[in-house]
Design a protein around this nucleic acid. Structure first.
Lengths: 168, 168
DNA sequence: TCGAACTTTCAATATTTATTGAAAGTTTTA
DNA sequence: TAAAACTTTCAATAAATATTGAAAGTTCGA
């Protein structure tokens, strides 16, 4: 496999992985392209290399900045914005968890809390099953939330070794 | 909020959470419905309560069985299949991680391994940046894979307390 | 073995989500 | 401050994904 085949396959693979873990396919592809580029790329470079439109490139680059997965780099003597990827993959993973925790877990916890207050006959079978299900789910979601919160504050080795110790 | 409002909101919330964590919206909604039902439900019950077609109900129930998130229950004197949800949410979370690890992480690791073997000039800036990026990513993906593998073998409290100890 | 009861499939269709590209907006420098 | 260089927006459109429902398939009891 030569460089260009490998590059395309990498962009494709990273895009697929990204889209299954909650970041859009194109955003992950742009990130992949930036990751393997030794130098910062402009919007036009991204458009050209991924064969996507200006609007699309711009939108996905901006989303990458929002998620903290890429940075702007200004080159002196040039008015264009250039972009580089966050290349510390552990940091990338932590950023994604952090964003998704904020965007997804928090609203769910709020909704669950509200649902426990359902009015009705406390002896009704359905009512009991409902409150029980919601309470159990809330407990697990809270623990997952806690685990993710800790995970983003630790480095990659600490987590792995903590888990490993449980098995020694 | 009365029982019916709460039930609808719960199904909606669980569907949204599910779809953002890799299981389809309707599959998560069917699971939600089963979770809060004190008794096993038939395909027709699911169709009626979620207002979805027979084909859709059937497909999603079968997917839930595939993922290990629901079970068939046969009632004597009735030829219909009835379904109950896996109600241990920690087990649900573990099943989802297990399935996704198999379906998503493993193929990515294989692809990455292949990509490291890219042919080309080892002193070229692009080539070096490429191999470095792929190697770094592989290292983190392997660790995540390891962490998930351990997570599905432990119970919920063990993981939380292991993480907690790191902060005491 | 037949036919009733139930389950599964799949091509057509609907819904959702992503992409385009031209127009509007912004910044820079001469 | 004018206009060139660049960025952003957004309505139209395309692509991907999910859903329907009728038809085909299966199972079971008589």
């Amino acid at each position: 496999m030569n460089y260009h085949e490998a590059k395309d396959k990498f962009i494709q693979t990273w895009g697929t992985l990204g889209s299954s873990w909650g970041i859009s396919r194109t955003m992950a592809q742009v990130h992949a392209l930036l990751l393997i580029s030794p130098d910062a790329l402009s919007t036009e470079d991204v458009m050209e290399q991924l064969k996507i439109s200006r609007g699309n490139a711009n939108m996905n680059l901006r989303d990458l900045l929002d998620w903290g997965l890429a940075y702007k780099e200004l080159k002196s003597g040039d008015r264009k914005d250039f972009f580089i990827a966050e290349k510390d993959i552990w940091k990338v993973a932590k950023q994604i968890i952090k964003e998704r925790r904020k965007r997804e877990i928090e609203p769910v916890l709020n909704a669950l809390e509200e649902l426990k207050a359902v009015k009705g006959d406390k002896n009704d079978k359905k009512h009991k099953a409902f409150v029980e299900a919601v309470t159990n789910i809330e407990r697990v979601v809270e623990k997952a939330d806690f685990a993710f919160d800790k995970a983003i504050k630790l480095d990659e080795n600490a987590i792995v070794s903590a888990l490993f110790k449980l098995f020694k």
